[in-house]
Design a protein around this nucleic acid. Structure first.
Ligand SMILES: [Mn+2]
Ligand SMILES: [Mn+2]
Ligand SMILES: [Zn+2]
Ligand SMILES: [Zn+2]
Lengths: 153, 153
DNA sequence: GTGAAAATGAAAGTCAATTTCAAAAAGCAA
DNA sequence: TTGCTTTTTGAAATTGACTTTCATTTTCAC
């Protein structure tokens, strides 16, 4: 595998994390983390496991699972739910919080950030004297490509 | 159980539904539907099952489950996911679509509708040439009452 | 190297959701 | 009402994603 070394700083960040107290440097975990951060996609455990198996047949589902959970604990990954019963993980990149458009036909995931929406959410919260800790906004439908294909049917 | 007969029109609506072709009029299903529509809450199968058991010990979890799924198919109920791994069902009432504030401490669910947010979602979709079929917006945090209690700790 | 502690993999366990299937209920027609 | 067919029901089994267990392997400080 080719590792994007621009992402290596993320690993260093991980190494410095307080959660790392008591952790050892395992080759397998490092490989999983590098691959995950480099690909920068929305991976289910299964998907990441299958991709990594291609480049290294020596890694188990359990290890991939535990590594993704660990990254989540350390704040380097986020769990996503897209209403299909599968938990996906995405790297937390510097480009902060964002929400998602999910194509129900091809599965494509588009990220977006809309500050006006975020602001209006706060207005809603204020109205109900509610403190928002986090939120989930997902827009489901058809991406542009799938719309074209649909018309062709 | 006291049935709110103002809601009976909903049942008639159900009876007319095309999906009802081939369905028989079962007393148990009717009881479940009446209770569900009358209470107008966000029920998990387990919760609805437990409440109905109190008034009629003769109904099984399976039947409650199947009835809620049937209502969903008929468009009289919606499934909700509030990030706790439990599917909840809510009646689809005339007061159309809405989104939710969910208190992570006491579980309270507040419904809200914000047309500006809905509008901005369409703007986002347009930007990506995406057709939104439906969306989910959930704001998680602390309700006003729980905020007070938290300070008291 | 040696030993303690952490990581790993395979298998087992968990739990909500879903399906199976034999028995009961509904409903139609004689 | 009775007989017959279809739908509904309940208990139990199954599914599937996720999570934990535990014996073995790896890491790493000494
Ligand atoms: Mn994302
Ligand atoms: Mn609601
Ligand atoms: Zn698509
Ligand atoms: Zn609360």
């Amino acid at each position: 595998m080719k590792v994007n070394f621009k992402k290596q700083n993320r690993l260093k960040e991980f190494s410095k994390d307080k959660s790392k107290i008591g952790l050892k440097n395992s080759q397998k975990r490092t490989l999983i983390i590098e691959y995950f951060l480099h690909e920068d996609k929305h991976f289910s455990v299964e998907e990441l496991y299958n991709e990594i198996k291609k480049i290294s047949s020596e890694i188990s589902y359990s290890t991939v699972y535990r590594t993704l959970k660990l990254l989540t604990t350390c704040g380097l990954a986020d769990e996503c739910n897209f209403d299909d019963g599968i938990t996906r993980f995405e790297p937390v990149h510097k480009a902060q919080h964002h929400d998602h458009l999910i194509c129900k036909r091809c599965g494509k995931i588009i990220e977006f950030k809309n500050n006006e929406i975020e602001k209006l959410q706060q207005d809603v919260a204020k109205k109900y004297k509610f403190s928002i800790k986090f939120h989930r906004l997902a827009l489901y439908g058809l991406c542009s490509e799938c719309k074209k294909k649909q018309r062709g049917n």
